[in-house]
């Protein structure tokens, strides 16, 4: 199938995500402009600094087009800062920080602490068990009714899905394991078939 997955490349770990997609034979496109966005079937939002990305989304003219595409059902996968951008509520963020409200969760920025507290750990999930890397990670503090919890550590949700929106508080792109990318690609492929 001819599928293009965009990786939002304004700031953050976009290169590592592109490498993951390449490793499973999926064509990826770095997205920095509305034109680049229009060529993709799905969008990956990487980790990085959510306040930086939020500002660059505005200055690059990408915020509204991405919002429209998500509303039209484009599959999106946000990791860490990317998850914050997708959340319906951001706690401890900057007051001017905007999000797409694409998934009904409340997320607290840097709730796992500063870098000294960053960690890696095993995640049990219905998609499989993963080695999760958590970097100054956000915490999912509330999960809405329509949201499915796919993975957790210590009974806390860290991987969630609502329709075509997938969000993780950890970094699958940092652990040489592309199974979650494969899962996201399968969501996109199913949508393309319809």
């Amino acid at each position: 199938m001819n599928m293009q997955v965009g990786v939002l490349a304004l700031q953050g770990a976009f290169a590592a995500h592109s490498e993951c997609l390449t490793s499973i034979g999926v064509q990826s496109v770095e997205v920095r402009t509305p034109e680049q966005l229009s060529s993709v079937d799905a969008l990956l939002m990487p980790g990085g600094e959510s306040s930086t990305m939020s500002q660059l989304l505005e200055s690059s003219g990408l915020f509204d087009p991405i919002s429209t595409r998500i509303a039209d059902g484009m599959p999106v996968f946000g990791t860490c800062a990317g998850m914050i951008l997708l959340a319906s509520e951001i706690l401890d963020g900057r007051s001017d920080q905007r999000s797409f409200s694409a998934i009904d969760i409340s997320v607290r920025r840097n709730a796992f602490g500063r870098q000294v507290d960053s960690f890696e750990s095993t995640i049990n999930s219905s998609v499989g068990d993963f080695h999760g890397v958590f970097i100054r990670a956000p915490r999912i503090e509330r999960v809405g009714d329509g949201v499915e919890v796919l993975g957790s550590i210590n009974n806390e949700p860290v991987l969630v899905r609502q329709g075509n929106v997938l969000a993780a508080s950890f970094h699958p792109e940092l652990s040489n394991d592309a199974r979650l990318h494969e899962y996201f690609v399968s969501i996109t492929a199913n949508r393309k078939k319809v």
């Binding site: 953050g12 770990a13 600094e49 750990s121």
Partner: peptide, 21 residues
Amino acid sequence: GSSSTGTQRVKRGLAEMLKGG
């Protein structure tokens, strides 16, 4: 337990997050 801090992966991970910023 199954959780580790201060690994090279976690350290280099923050550097990955800063790219393009």
